[in-house]
Design a protein around this nucleic acid. Structure first.
Ligand code: SF4
Ligand code: SF4
Lengths: 143, 143
DNA sequence: GATTAAAAAGACCTAATTTGTCCTGTTTAT
DNA sequence: ATAAACAGGACAAATTAGGTCTTTTTAATC
């Protein structure tokens, strides 16, 4: 019942990119250093994000990563789903019919309600929102 | 990022008890059979719940469990915290100062917001609410 | 064309957590 | 005494999270 490192690292990496000049190509190694994230691990996370189109990778010399689309069109929900698959607060919410007792279970509607509230926030918050929040608060941090 | 079996089993067990005549003493074995929950596992869970006062256990022959207090005064939040400790959507929300970058992190306020919404529901939903929901919907299920 | 920097892909490993099982002890009604 | 029932500790299996390493592919540049 906790946000994973994978998710946190991914979001921090994306926010970092959102704060760079647009279209600038940035090295994984740079992000990992600034954000104190294990480089190989971040690289693997970025692979998944670029398969999902959230990042664009540029291979070869002078390569690196940039955002796959404007930061205001990447939601937290997309990021999480790209990494962990469809959000499901309980197994019965991942796919219909996963649990036979679903129609009879008093918990099911509660999980639905909770998940709905959850997704509402994730879907309404973009990487740009996160980046701006740092700026607005006068925060610089390491990215 | 998912409700655990432990939590689900606990809640289903409590709802089962809430639907019994008040003060009736019920065997773990009965609940486990009706609810299809591994008996030894449920017994363990019930131990923790009774240490937290959410259940009352009666030992010896003719023993068993009943609710530790009226079902309308047991919230989902209490159940979860009895089992998994303080709710913390991310490590920085479990205890202040867990992460050094907290003051600088754009994710932190989002997790706070999410967790707030989350806890709002958990805190506002009692075991009685869950049990009633089954009744209202004409659901019998196995509990 | 050879060299080299850089990312992709994915195999692999380790540690932690979750989900159980089992066995022994303790309490208590009969 | 004895059988029923919870208490608790130890342990085992399965799953997931977190992280490393190696090999392959690509692209720029000399
Ligand atoms: S028992 Fe209820 S909460 Fe658990 S998986 Fe089935 S429907 Fe979902
Ligand atoms: S980096 Fe941000 S989200 Fe992660 S633990 Fe620290 S404060 Fe919380």
């Amino acid at each position: 019942m906790q946000i994973t490192r994978t998710e946190e690292y991914a979001l921090r990496g994306l926010v970092f990119l959102a704060r760079q000049p647009p279209e600038k190509v940035t090295l994984v190694s740079e992000i990992s250093k600034e954000q104190k994230i294990p480089e190989a691990f971040l690289a693997k996370i970025f692979q998944r994000l670029s398969k999902a189109g959230l990042l664009r990778s540029i291979r070869g010399a002078n390569g690196g990563f940039s955002l796959g689309r404007p930061a205001n069109r990447i939601t937290m929900k997309e990021v999480m789903e790209a990494l962990e698959g469809p959000i499901g607060l309980s197994r019965c919410l991942v796919r219909e019919g996963e649990c036979e007792e679903e129609a009879v279970c008093p918990l099911h509607p509660i999980w639905e309600e909770l998940q709905h509230r959850f997704v509402e926030v994730l879907d309404g918050t973009t990487v740009e929102d996160l980046a701006k929040r740092m700026v607005r608060d006068g925060r610089r941090g390491r990215g």
